[in-house]
Simulated scan of single mutants.
Amino acid sequence: MALLPIRRIIRPQGRPLGPLTMYQPLPENGLDQIDPFLLLHHHGPQTFPAHNTGLPFGPHPHRGFETVTFIYEGDVQHRDSNGYESTIRGGGVQWMTAGSGLVHSETSSADFRRDGGPVELIQLWINLPARLKMTPPDYRGLQEDDIPVAAEGGASLAVVSGTWSGVAGPVASSTELATLTLAPAGGYTREIPAGKSILFYVLNGSATVNGQAVQGRALVVFGEESGTIEVRSDSGCRILWGIADPIREPVVAHGPFVMNTGDEIRQAIADYQSGKMGFLE
């Protein structure tokens, strides 16, 4: 199978978000989404001092999509109006289905606020099709030990969903997600059938992707043709990789709500304001 052509490489600029430095390669000028991947925020890597205020994501609502938070360093304390609560440490993942709507917060543990330390996170928003937008909310917190790893040829894949190199992830989803880590001189190859959407974000290090050099903090944009993605690294790198079927439905987004029509957005706002998504102090 021929190498899948690269259409574009996006290198976001950092900007402050409270105490964090945030990089947003998606959405970006000229690229609203990689259907169904709606948004990618890369926070850090950076070091918080002792006696810090922690992550700045206090209570806020969501409806109509899923949020997946990859905690590479530091920790994230999740609370939501459905009663789910957990603190996930470095190497873990939080997968939240907002569905019909809830209020949640993502902050740092008391230990982290007291002691400080390194922080690196990615938050990914994944759209839901119209038939699932009002599904009951759900949450799953995975520590590093809950995430199986596939290893081959100097590559290791922390598999969150889907099946990679024969290893199935713990989250049942039509979206396949894994973090690929390449050791120096490592490589990994995967064939992609036609019609798939590819999320391919190089967090750090340097890689050669289908023959093209890519430095860290870069989103590599592919088309929907069939083909092979071949990645190699001389010095080592880490990549967030997602594969999904596009939904191909209208997207109307307003802040924390992602629906199919303007009327649905207005209803989401009214439901949140009237308390139908619950409350979180």
Results as ranks from 00 to 15, higher is better:
2 A>E: 14
2 A>I: 14
3 L>R: 15
3 L>H: 12
4 L>I: 09
4 L>S: 11
5 P>K: 03
5 P>A: 02
5 P>S: 06
7 R>Q: 15
8 R>H: 12
8 R>G: 00
9 I>W: 08
10 I>Y: 00
10 I>H: 00
10 I>E: 06
10 I>G: 05
10 I>L: 11
12 P>S: 06
13 Q>R: 12
14 G>S: 15
15 R>V: 00
15 R>K: 12
15 R>N: 10
16 P>L: 10
16 P>Q: 14
16 P>D: 14
16 P>V: 06
16 P>C: 05
18 G>A: 05
19 P>F: 07
20 L>P: 08
20 L>M: 11
20 L>K: 07
21 T>R: 12
22 M>D: 10
22 M>T: 09
23 Y>S: 06
24 Q>R: 15
25 P>Q: 07
25 P>L: 05
25 P>K: 06
26 L>K: 02
26 L>Y: 02
26 L>F: 01
27 P>T: 06
27 P>A: 13
27 P>D: 07
28 E>W: 14
28 E>S: 15
28 E>K: 07
29 N>Y: 11
29 N>W: 03
29 N>I: 08
30 G>C: 11
31 L>Q: 10
32 D>W: 05
33 Q>F: 06
33 Q>R: 14
34 I>V: 12
34 I>L: 13
35 D>H: 13
35 D>M: 04
35 D>Y: 11
36 P>T: 09
36 P>L: 06
36 P>H: 03
36 P>E: 11
36 P>Y: 04
